[in-house]
Computed example of a mutant assay.
Amino acid sequence: MSANPFLDPALVRGRLYRGDGRLADRTHALHRAKISGSDVADTIADLLAARVPTAADVLDIGCGRGTTTLRLADRLRPKHLAAVDASAALLHTTRGRLADAGALGSGVQADFHHLPLPDSAADAAVAAFCLYHSPTPDKAMAEIARCLRPGGTAVLVTKSLDSYAELDHLVHAAGLDPHATSRPSLYESFHSDNLRTVTASHLTVLDVQHEEHVFRFADATHLARYLTTTPKYRITLTGGIAAVTATLQQRLAPPPYTTRSTVSYAVAVRP
């Protein structure tokens, strides 16, 4: 079992993504807290729109619940849009959201190290907030490059190693996890500092951009809703959100609670 839950295959296949509830709750809590930073799906669509031809073939690798997939469908109007994820539950959600929006797209259940796609199948590929689940992201990058046509564009997105580090100290101070400040970053395998190097292992990097996102949790309940969805900490307290909320209220200074994350984008092409 890996010390980093994002690199533990059993956890990734099981508790983390067997259903879509945990990811939905985590995303909702973060979006409610966000006070600064661009919409990531919009930024990805903007980066691709200037480079991708009309009627393109587009891949959204590690599509999750399909937020970026929907934005790509709307902005790029691709000839074919394939949403790829290892989780059947997340793909089911993405397919449903595409259908509800009247958008065309297909779902492919696959490990991004072994994409069931032919060589040179796509004009563009996105891999956002997913490659840090790989202990060997350069191998996943090789698959992305293989699936792109020569001159095809990839947008890769990740976070900094110290993302949400302020929460480590809050969790430690509240006694919810005495080792919170020493646990490895969830993003240790693919992060803002190695994004360019890993991408350049198989693609030609055109640009790398970094943007700070700031989050403010308005009260202890809001923070507890986020903390109970993140796999980084070992919170053994029973009683769920209510118990975590009570502990935060008793042991921390009054809210709000602010944290930060750097979101990084690489734009690259297949030579």
Rank of each mutant, 00 (worst) to 15 (best):
M1P: 15
P5F: 12
P5N: 08
A10P: 00
G14C: 08
R15M: 04
R15C: 08
G19T: 15
G19M: 00
D20G: 14
R22C: 10
L23R: 14
D25F: 01
H28P: 09
A29S: 05
S38E: 14
V40A: 10
V40Y: 10
D42E: 15
V58A: 04
D60H: 00
T69N: 00
R71V: 02
K79Q: 15
V84T: 01
D85K: 01
A86M: 13
S87G: 06
R95A: 10
R95V: 14
D100A: 13
G105I: 01
A110E: 12
D111M: 07
P116S: 12
A124Q: 09
A125G: 11
V126K: 00
P135H: 09
I144R: 08
C147H: 06
L148Y: 10
R149C: 11
V157F: 07
D162E: 13
A165H: 14
E166D: 08
L167T: 01
D168E: 05
V171K: 05
T181V: 13
T181P: 08
L186R: 07
S192F: 06
D193P: 06
N194L: 07
L195H: 03
T197Y: 07
V198W: 12
V205P: 06
D207W: 05
V208G: 08
H210Q: 15
F215P: 10
F217C: 07
A220P: 03
R225D: 07
R225G: 06
T228C: 13
T230W: 04
T236I: 03
T236R: 13
I241L: 00
A242I: 02
L252F: 08
A253F: 12
A253V: 15
P255W: 04
P255G: 12
P256C: 11
T259D: 04
A268F: 03
A268H: 04
A268T: 01
R270K: 14
P271A: 11
P271H: 05
